[in-house]
Structure formats: C-alpha cells, structure tokens
Simulated assay, not measured.
Amino acid sequence: MRRPTAGGLFTSGLLLLTAATGAIDAVSYLALDGVFTGNMTGNVLFLAFALVGVPDMPLLNNGFALAGFALGSVLGGRIVGRGHPVGLPTRSAWLLGVGAALVFVLVGAWTAVGHLHGPAEITLTAVLAALMGAQVAAVKPVGNTDITTVVVTSTLANVTRESRVGGGRQTRTQWRDRALAVLAMGAGAAVGAAVLRAADGPAALAASGVVFVAGVAALLLGRRAAATAAP
C-alpha cells in the first residue's frame, strides 16, 4: 500500500482544522450569544451594527472575540517565529498540541459551570477566539495559502475567479484544495450544529475538539513523513 506523502498529510491536516473551525464557530454562534470565534468577518459586521444601535447585537461578546483572536495571533506569531522552511516547525507542533488540550479543558469547565452567562460566557468566547488566532499562526509555515483554516470567503473567490469559466488557469491541486476547504468549513459547521441540537454545548465543543485533534495528528504525521523523506 502506498504511504501518504508529507504534502498529502499536511493538506489533510489543514482541511481537518478548517472543519474544526467550522464546528467551533457553530458552537460559539449558536450557544454563545451569536458570536464567531474563528471567522472574524461576521464579528466585524455585528460590531458595526451594534455601534449604530441595531438591537440584539452582542457588542461585548463580539468585541472580546475580536480582541481574543488578535491576541492569540500575536502570541502565536511570537512563539512560532519567522523564517522556517516549509513544513511544521517544532514550536508550531507544540502550540497546536496545547491548543487541542485547551479545547478539552474548556469542555470540562463548561460542563462544570453548566449554563453560561455574563463573564463566564465572555471568557469562553475570548479564549476560543485566541485559540483560533494562535492556530492560524501555527499553520502558517506549512505554506498552503489555499487553506487558511479560518476563512473561506477569499478561498471561494479564488476557486471561482481563477476557474476556466472565470478565465483563470488554476492548477488541479489548487482547485482541489480550495474547493475542499470550502466544503470542510461547511461540513464542520454542520457537525457542530447537529451535535449541539442532539446534546448540548459542551458535547458539541468536544466533538469539535475531536476534529481539531485529528487535524493536529495529520500535521504531525506529515512532519514525520517530511523528516523521513529528507536526504
């Protein structure tokens, strides 16, 4: 049987992390007062709506989500650093591992607290957003700009604009990665929402964590395969 290549494993890992982002966003939006923790575009719009007086817009939660994501991205960038060869640096691997563990710590805390409101809800939102921001920094050295793990708007624009119908010349690999990234985000969101409807918030976040762990595992396997293949 042919062994998976490092590139294939890296791509699979990024797609699984994209699905995990969709699942976590489903949980945060549906169970944490209508806020996204991975896709910041929606939060920017919701925050703008709230600032001009549109009712029922979660101003505080959206503000903390944006701040948490930015902080996580800054810290992740500092921890991972710059100038790495294409692949998964050791610091990225550790950062993703800590992030995976953190998801399940949050599951335990949510289960213990029960119904979230006020400071507890805002804290969980901010920590999840920071985790998503750090994740972006951690996977940056992998070098696949077609799968960002947190945003699919530009991905969808690229896969359509650069298609033959759009007059572009994207490669088969680019088309595959971009299309699968959009599907992965949607599939992850469906999983998160389905588990939330069938059970509760902690269970849905735990399911999201399982997908996140699978993504990290695939990236680690890709790292090992790349090291094995190196001369």
Score class of each variant (00 low, 15 high):
G63P: 02
G63E: 05
G63S: 08
F64P: 01
A65G: 04
A65Q: 09
L66W: 10
A67T: 10
A67R: 07
G68R: 01
G68H: 07
G68P: 04
A70G: 07
A70V: 15
A70Q: 14
L71Y: 09
L71N: 00
L71V: 15
S73L: 04
S73K: 04
L75D: 06
L75G: 13
G76Q: 05
G77D: 11
G77S: 15
G77Y: 10
R78C: 14
I79D: 04
G81P: 10
R82F: 01
G83M: 11
G83L: 12
G83T: 14
G83R: 00
H84T: 05
P85S: 12
P85R: 08
P85C: 07
P85T: 03
V86D: 11
G87D: 00
L88R: 00
L88T: 08
L88E: 10
P89S: 11
T90F: 02
T90E: 08
R91N: 03
R91W: 13
S92Y: 04
S92E: 03
L96S: 11
G97Y: 01
G97Q: 10
G97V: 07
V98H: 10
V98S: 12
G99Q: 05
G99H: 02
A100F: 01
A100Q: 06
L102M: 06
F104P: 07
L106K: 01
L106E: 01
V107H: 00
V107A: 01
G108Y: 01
A109E: 02
A109I: 12
A109T: 12
A109Y: 07
W110N: 01
W110Q: 11
T111S: 13
A112Y: 03
G114H: 05
L116I: 00
L116S: 00
L116M: 05
H117Y: 11
H117G: 13
G118R: 01
P119D: 12
P119W: 02
P119K: 05
P119T: 03
A120C: 01
A120Q: 10
A120M: 03
E121C: 06
E121D: 00
E121A: 10
I122Q: 08
I122N: 13
T123S: 08
T123I: 14
T123Q: 00
T123H: 05
T125D: 12
T125K: 00
T125Y: 03
V127C: 13
V127L: 00
A129R: 05
A129Q: 11
A130I: 12
A130S: 11
L131R: 04
L131Y: 07
G133E: 13
G133N: 15
Q135Y: 01
Q135G: 06
A137M: 00
A138K: 02
A138M: 08
A138W: 11
A138N: 08
V139R: 03
V139K: 13
K140V: 15
K140Q: 14
P141W: 06
P141R: 09
V142N: 14
V142L: 15
G143N: 14
G143V: 12
G143R: 06
T145M: 03
T145S: 07
T145H: 14
D146I: 09
D146P: 13
T148G: 04
T148A: 12
T148N: 13
T148F: 15
T149F: 13
T149R: 07
T149N: 14
T149W: 11
